[in-house]
Write a protein that binds this DNA or RNA. Sequence first.
RNA 1: GCCUCCAUAGCCCAAUGGCAGAGGCAGACGACUUAAAAUCGUCAAAGUGUGGGUUCGAGUCCCACUGGAGGCACCA
Length: 670
Amino acid sequence: MNWCPSCQTVLANEQVVQGLCERCDSVVTKKALTQWYFKVTDYADRLLDDLDTLEGNWPSKVLSMQRNWIGRSHGADVNFEIEGRSEPVTVFTTRPDTLFGATFMVVAADSALAAELVADSNPDIQKQFVSYLEMVKQSNDIERLATDRPKTGVDLGRFAINPVNGEKLPIWASDYVLADYGHGAIMAVPAHDQRDYEFAKTFGLPIRNVVDVKDENGQSIDPILAGVPTTGSGTVINSGPLNGLEKAEAIEKISALLETDGKGKKTKNFRLRDWLISRQRYWGTPIPIIHCEMCGEVPVPVDQLPVLLPPAEGLDLKPKGTSPLGGATDWVNTKCPKCGMDAKRDTDTMDTFVDSSWYFLRFLSPNSTEVAFPKDEAKAWAPVDQYVGGVTHAILHLLYARFVTKVLHDLDYIDFEEPFTRLLNQGMVLMGGSAMSKSRGNLVALSEQLDEHGVDAIRLTMSFAGPPEEDIDWADVSPAGSAKFLARAWRTANDVASAPGVDFTDGNGELRKATHSFLRDFGPLIENFKFNVGVAKIMELVNALRKAIDGQAGPADPAVREAAETVAKALSLFAPYTAEDMWQKLGFKPGVALAQLPESDLSLLVESSIIAIAQVDGKVRDKFEVPVDISEADLRDLAMASDLVKKAIGDREVANVIVRAPKLVNIATK
RNA sequence: GCCUCCAUAGCCCAAUGGCAGAGGCAGACGACUUAAAAUCGUCAAAGUGUGGGUUCGAGUCCCACUGGAGGCACCA
């Protein structure tokens, strides 16, 4: 399993990023240990298929990352008899159509199968194998990930029988086959697989073309002459009963044939591995298992849960490869719940991702000592309607929580199968293109920014900089500009000369229109997380308000008060201090956050006329003011009568006239 | 190698398939001022990365390419 030499603990696959520990960036090595797993693979199909139900509500990036990570591939299991072994060896392949092209077999060097096969081989080979295995074990994930790594391996001196043609295939051991994917063994078809091809070239193994793949000129490519394997689709050749079939047909036929003969079957495989939850750390939840010499591994009975951590005093908490809990002798030594004999507690703790996989349910009853969460509360409140978090958890927390949710559902604790209905990945604040980090430090000192511009301006700057899911480069934004805008908005509240409660009805029409079109647009923008556009709309309204105060309407116009109150209420979402001050300057008691934005009076926004545009072949040629209820025929006639339109049409023939009353006419010419 | 997302004025960003501009930063000019700052106002500035396609009409839909960001990767 994955081992972090710095944290001195094992890690789950999801916690190894590019060969490095997710927590501390140390190079992860391999270590053989007996550990606890959650069988996530049993849920692989559902975790994958249910992603479809989140489509549109989760970022597509996260959906694709999870699909990628789960990595389902369809293919077939094929059983190969092994000379001198009673049991056949099963291999998984996505290309059973190329079975006739198999020229050797490869087993994972670090698998039990390789060790077993070599044990019955000759001593020379055994010696080679042992030293090869030693070399493999010493390589870390970084080396394994190198793309230009030459193929290595050892001929085990054993043979497999191809079930379709009885051919003897030499069996090799190599590290390019993974022990924990599929069955840890593959059939090698060098003519049609890049890795098998490289291996065959390195060790002089035969290459047999069984798929006639054509190049762009329609010429057949011979993998041996071309020097590259042909991995694309084509017609099957040199393959007995499969000859002449296309890829999909051949896969169906060979799968059926294998099944009939009991030599294989259609199946699927996943990239997803089971979740290794044991950690050799003090923090975390103790694994509730008691090890008894007589009864084996016994779960702690429900009435003794939860198992609490022993006090940390006196324990060696430094990472040392074994759990610090091992030092808590009084805690470790216990009685077997089954037979009552002396027994020992499991000293590992659970991955903290286990806890974060259901914490949102615990929020429903944080003080309950009886249950983790009450069923009826979960039914009433969960799932989470809107979740906000960083994309860094796309395949960690968000996959684990989905898994735990499905398990809880199956155990009938909850009635939903997905924990988070909607997901937003917020972006990061960058500086000059660089993310801030432990090594680079805080490139933008938040406290200094707050001191300089004030918390309202900083919050507004972040909201206004762009869509919340995008990163913000602090070098591109202007907190000083935000502060300036807030001052401008604030000043309007001071200018208002009418009293609270004044009737808005007779206020300046133009400003009222601006206020109510703002009210129409603002709510949906906020609900759809378009905060940057929402802020822009407030700015727009402030501009209109300023103009009205300085212009014809004047500070005493009721519409000025209406607009200023609206600005204060809307602004309270982004700049609560400024908004509150405006609110009180406007003569209200404290609490702008509790003041509701009024409904938009749509009747104020009804126009009697509108500017219609006339296009010729999609290009705007003329505009005219028309009644909003103009008929299509009238609008068409108006457009056709326009001199500018006539000029644009010239002597061409009119082919089609599209009318979208009252806004647009488009005249298409031949 | 496979997959996903993105590309709009100098910059950050808006735009139910229907007039490319809502908002801001930076800029130019004007008013106020003895002057400056602050404030108020006016203006200028892309034809939407490139090439095709669909459509009456494309920033928006489709294909290819270029550039950028990200994910997965000896997964058979």
